[in-house]
Simulated scan of single mutants.
Amino acid sequence: MAKITAAEVNKLRKSTGAGMMDCKKALVEADGDFDKAIEILRKKGQKVAAKRADRDSSEGAAIATVNDDANKGVIISLNCETDFVAKNDDFVSLAHDLAGIALEAGSKDAFLAANYKGMTVQEKLTEQTGVIGEKIEIGAFETLEAPFVGSYIHAGNKIAVLTGLSKSVDGAADVAKDVAMQAAAMNPIALNEEGVDASVVEKEIEIAKDQLRQEGKPEEMLDNIAKGKLKRFFKDNTLVNQAFIKDNKQSVSEYVATLGKDVEVVGFKRVAIE
């Protein structure tokens, strides 16, 4: 049996993030073979992952990142079971590393199959499930492309937002971030009126009509009054029509237009861990 030194154990711990005793046991089982010990730890992770497959991974970190050309962005959420793990510096660092890989992948499947330090992203998640002892998985995977893409991550990594502008102009970075902060704070259901699902519109009209009937309004007046209420709904719940949180005397679209009359918000993605 090979003699396992403290230095070897520490090297394996730094390489994998596993606990000292787990690393020592893996090296003993592998008879000192470093690569084999890593494989043993991975297999342990797979066993833990299987045991925890039905657990709820509702905590985690939501990370948004944008490419160097600022025309493409991605949001991923690295999910876990507890807030304690979600706040761990190593966990958050891993989430940022993975977001960088996700930026280059065209889909979630391609991302999970991508290389991460000699293993796939999915294998890394399985390994970390074994190391941490919690279910670790990728939840959200959202991408956005536009002439200019900005991003914002809310304190605590609980909300991440991407916003797209129709032009890349001076000041676009600050404005895109402001709009992303708006989306983070106000949680709009769509970019504009056209983006609101027809079923939601119908439901809001019916709710408005029921309220008006209870107020005793004549039936022939309901449609027109309900349309007015619907406009208010769009103003409160669609991003470009919302009052800008830094200056509620103008809408978000009016604020963005300060960059130029032909500059507008063309898309956004928002991921929240709640």
Rank of each mutant, 00 (worst) to 15 (best):
M1G: 15
K3R: 12
T5E: 09
A7N: 11
A7C: 03
E8F: 02
L12F: 08
R13W: 11
T16K: 06
G17C: 11
G17P: 11
A18M: 02
A18G: 05
G19I: 04
K24N: 07
D33P: 13
D35E: 15
I38R: 12
L41T: 11
L41C: 10
L41K: 04
R42S: 06
K43C: 04
K47T: 14
V48Q: 13
V48Y: 10
A49R: 13
A50M: 01
A50Y: 08
K51I: 05
R52M: 08
A53L: 07
D54Q: 09
R55Y: 07
D56P: 02
D56G: 07
D56A: 14
S58N: 14
A61V: 05
N67I: 05
N67F: 08
A70P: 00
A70W: 00
N71V: 07
V74F: 06
I75Y: 06
I76T: 14
L78P: 04
C80I: 03
F84P: 01
F84E: 06
V85D: 10
V85H: 11
V85N: 04
V85T: 13
A86R: 04
D89K: 12
F91P: 02
F91R: 00
D97C: 01
L98N: 03
L98G: 03
L103V: 09
L103W: 08
G106F: 08
S107R: 07
D109A: 11
A110T: 06
A113E: 13
A113F: 11
Y116S: 01
Y116D: 01
Y116E: 02
V121N: 08
Q122S: 14
E123P: 10
K124H: 12
K124V: 11
T129G: 02
G130A: 08
G130C: 09
I132S: 11
E134K: 01
E134H: 05
K135G: 07
I136R: 01
T143N: 11
E145K: 08
E145R: 06
A146W: 03
P147C: 05
P147W: 11
A155S: 15
K158C: 04
I159K: 10
A160V: 14
V161T: 13
V161R: 10
G164K: 00
L165K: 09
D174W: 04
K177R: 13
D178C: 00
D178F: 00
A180W: 08
Q182K: 04
A183V: 10
M186F: 10
N187L: 09
N187C: 05
N187P: 04
P188Q: 08
L191W: 01
E193A: 14
G195R: 09
D197S: 09
A198G: 09
K203H: 13
K203R: 15
K203D: 14
E204D: 04
I205R: 14
A208C: 09
Q211M: 07
L212F: 07
K217S: 02
E219I: 03
D223Q: 13
A226L: 04
A226N: 11
K227Y: 12
K227D: 13
K229W: 03
K229L: 05
F234M: 15
L239N: 02
L239K: 05
N241R: 07
V256W: 01
V256Y: 08
A257W: 00
L259A: 03
L259D: 10
V263Q: 08
V266M: 07
G267M: 01
